[in-house]
Every structure is written in C-alpha cells, then in structure tokens.
Design a protein around this nucleic acid. Structure first.
Lengths: 152, 152
DNA sequence: CTTGAAAAGAACTGCCT
DNA sequence: AGGCAGTTCTTTTCAAG
C-alpha cells in the first residue's frame, strides 16, 4: 500500500483516461513542473500502482461488431481441472477475457465475434464443445462505460 | 473496416501487451525501420483501430483487494429510465465499469471494494438503494487473464 | 517544491528507392 | 509500401535555489 495525495490521484485519473500525454502537459494542467510531475509518475510506477500502458483496440473497426459476456459453469467438477479448462478457453482467439470467479458461475468470458451468426459458431463449436463445459449464460453488450474507479 | 496485413497484426498484438515501447524498438523486433513502424501505428490510429493509450492501475496496491461482477436487473421497468439508472450507477466511485447488456440482466457492473465488508456496504447502501434496482447476481473475482482478442 | 539546462531518445517530416 | 537523414519534441537526469 502507498500513501497518495490529491495530486497523485489527479495524475492517475488523467493517465487512466489518456496515457499518451506528456508529463509536461499533465503538469501544466495541475500547476506542477515537468520534473515534479515526472517524479510522481515514476514513484507511482515504482510502487506498482501503475502497471504499464496498453493501447485500447476498437473491436468494431476490426470487424468484430458483437461482444458477449458469458457465464460458464463447469459440469462434472473434478473430471476436468480448473486449470485445464481455463487454458482451453484462453486458447480460443475470440475470447478476450477469462475471469475465474466465485459465485453463480465458475468463469466469466468476454467474447467478440463478427456478428451473431459468428458468435453462435464460437459458442457451439468452441466453447460448448470444451470438455467440462456446463451451463452457460449469455449477455450481449449494447454499450459500455469505463471509469477510473476509486483511487485510495 | 480496414485492411490489415500480418505486420499490422503483430504491431497491434505488441502494443496491446505494452504500449510503452517505442516505434524503433518495436520495429527492430519486426525487422522494420523506425519510420515505417511509426507510420503503420499512425495509420492504425487514424483508422480508429487504436483508440488511445491507457495506464493499467493496480487496484490491490490502491487498497482495493476485492473485485465483484454484478448482474443487475431493473425492477419496475418504465418507472426509471435506463439512462437515469446508468448515470446513477456510473456516479458510484467503486463502480469501474457499467455495461448495458441484453439478456438475463440489464446491466453488468465491475465493482471494487477494500474487502468483503466494504463491498457489502457498497452493495446495500449504494447499489441496492438505487431506485429501480431489482434482482442482483454477484460473482467474486479470483483471477483474470486478458488477451488481445482476434485481430481481423 | 521550483527553474534551467543538458544529453539521450523518441516522435515526426520530407525525400528518395 | 520501405529506408535514410534530419528536425522537433519528450524524456530523463542533473545542478542550484
């Protein structure tokens, strides 16, 4: 754990929205000099609060217009290990996220497909075909909003 | 839609893993010069395939050790509009993601909290207290794996 | 914390194959 | 398309107040 002041929180919020901006530009917005801002970013990175930068890809522009969230239950638990099942799901290209969860389901998947027909193919041929796959629940994404979340 | 060749796909895959690396370093790995790599990245950005860079924050290091996925159904549909409900959920600091979905639930939320006791507070005081909130399903995150997804 | 500066590197531009 | 060479900007590290 690390102590964050208000400026640190503003920096994290700004970088969570756009990590492309320079330390100088960010500092100007916060009334801080370039070196001071840069030192804070480095401190946050060294402390592990900032894990790294990633580009956000636009699935629609890549031809994947359908995103579906799947809740998956393992059938016949014990016959297939969680690890094997997780690995098998991660190997499906259309699967963007594999979340191992505790609750109503065993796994939550974020799956993208070109369209609903394509999704049906992925669901039937790839996911339901996995040894151990049990009950499945689907929710089709209509819109999404991401927020930085609480910062200390 | 845009035509991607194999090199574009490799670039996207690399940047999805780490957007911090320079065009020069990336090009060296792919056997491309710095300007050629940079021009491709710019082309992908202009085409909207690359939407921007974001830092990945480590919620645990910020003191939020619990992540829960919630499926939420709207009760008494029509009395409260989807827009109002969505706005109200987005205003809760602990809510990282609001997904409007079609299926078993109306919304899917990603919620972080300091611990399970803190999560109970958020769930009862903030989310269930929303006018219009109906049935709720919860799944606690154990582990998560993200992959780039299909690239054309 | 600040300003100022210097060196290294990355981003960007124009020209040529 | 790609490469080369050059310019501009940012990053990164100093020193000094």
């Amino acid at each position: 754990m690390i102590e964050l002041d208000d400026i640190d929180r503003q920096i994290l919020r700004a970088l969570a929205r756009d990590a492309g901006q320079s330390a100088g530009a960010l500092g100007r917005d916060l009334g801080l000099s370039q070196p001071a801002t840069w030192r804070r970013i480095r401190r946050l990175t060294d402390a592990g609060v900032i894990r790294g930068k990633r580009v956000r890809l636009n699935a629609e522009r890549l031809g994947f217009g359908v995103t579906v969230f799947l809740g998956v239950k393992l059938a016949r638990k014990g016959q297939v290990t969680l690890e094997d099942f997780e690995r098998a799901m991660s190997a499906i290209p259309e699967v963007q996220t594999v979340e191992h969860v505790l609750g109503v389901y065993d796994f939550r998947l974020r799956v993208v497909a070109r369209d609903l027909a394509d999704f049906e193919r992925v669901l039937r041929r790839r996911i339901m075909a996995l040894p151990g796959a049990g009950e499945v629940e689907a929710n089709v994404l209509l819109s999404e909003e991401r927020r930085p979340g609480p910062l200390g």
